[in-house]
């Protein structure tokens, strides 16, 4: 099945998509999770007017201002992460449990998340297939905080255990459970989900292609959109 243009039009009329950028080599998982929490607090449930409106800027033609988006009051939040981003989200969810936070009620959808470890050889192999921006990272990988977190069983098991403990107390907190998908050719992260996570596998996809929709592969979109 391929999603038609009209279907995506309808979808995007009801949904907004925010990208959260983090420093995937330099910062550790905790720092990125804290930054993600800060970002989410800014945009959910109501993003600030400056994100939706061009008003407030001088010398704006009326016709351009008329394109302003209406104010938003979101009722649903879906957190989508890939690879390191998966562990960042799960850490943020654990942090959110320490306070009353709307993140706890989010849905979590993860593509090839690094929640059960990383294969150093697989990761280096993936970087080699990319571009010069990734090649120059190779010598500094071992000293990267995020890399150390992702390859430390103590670290990701601690995040897992805290998640499992929180589930016992907050059964209605949907963010503590995740939908997780791996490709059958996964060789960068350890493709193991946490107990009670919903797991899916897609044949013929690897760590990179698993989350990239193409004309013949729309699972990344349907996986997020369904429910």
């Amino acid at each position: 099945m391929t999603i038609s243009h009209s279907t995506t039009e309808t979808f995007w009329r009801k949904h907004d998509l925010f990208f959260f950028a983090y420093r995937s080599v330099r910062d550790g998982i905790r720092t990125s999770a804290d930054n993600l929490m800060g970002f989410l607090a800014e945009v959910f449930p109501s993003p600030p007017a400056r994100i939706l409106s061009i008003l407030g800027r001088s010398n704006v033609p009326k016709s351009l201002a008329s394109l302003d988006s209406p104010r938003r009051a979101y009722t649903r939040l879906v957190l989508v992460g890939h690879s390191e981003g998966g562990l960042v989200i799960r850490k943020a969810v654990v942090l959110a449990e320490k306070q009353s936070n709307p993140v706890s009620r989010a849905r979590v959808v993860l593509f090839a998340p690094a929640i059960s470890g990383v294969s150093p050889a697989g990761l280096k192999g993936m970087l080699l297939k990319s571009g010069p921006g990734d090649w120059i990272v190779l010598p500094y990988l071992a000293n990267s905080r995020a890399y150390r977190d992702m390859t430390s069983a103590n670290y990701f098991n601690d995040v897992r255990d805290r998640t499992l403990e929180a589930r016992e107390i907050h059964k209605a907190h949907s963010a503590l459970w995740a939908k997780v998908v791996f490709g059958s050719e996964e060789d960068v992260v350890v493709p193991v989900v946490w107990p009670e996570d919903q797991e899916d596998q897609v044949t013929g996809h690897d760590h990179v292609s698993i989350c990239k929709p193409t004309s013949k592969y729309d699972r990344p979109i349907t996986f997020v959109a369904e429910n």
Binding site: N59, V60, P61, S63, L64
Partner: peptide
């Protein structure tokens, strides 16, 4: 990009 607003962007 809508035409009217784009024309205004151009002239502004």
């Amino acid at each position: 990009f809508p035409r009217e607003a784009s024309e205004d962007v151009y002239s502004y």
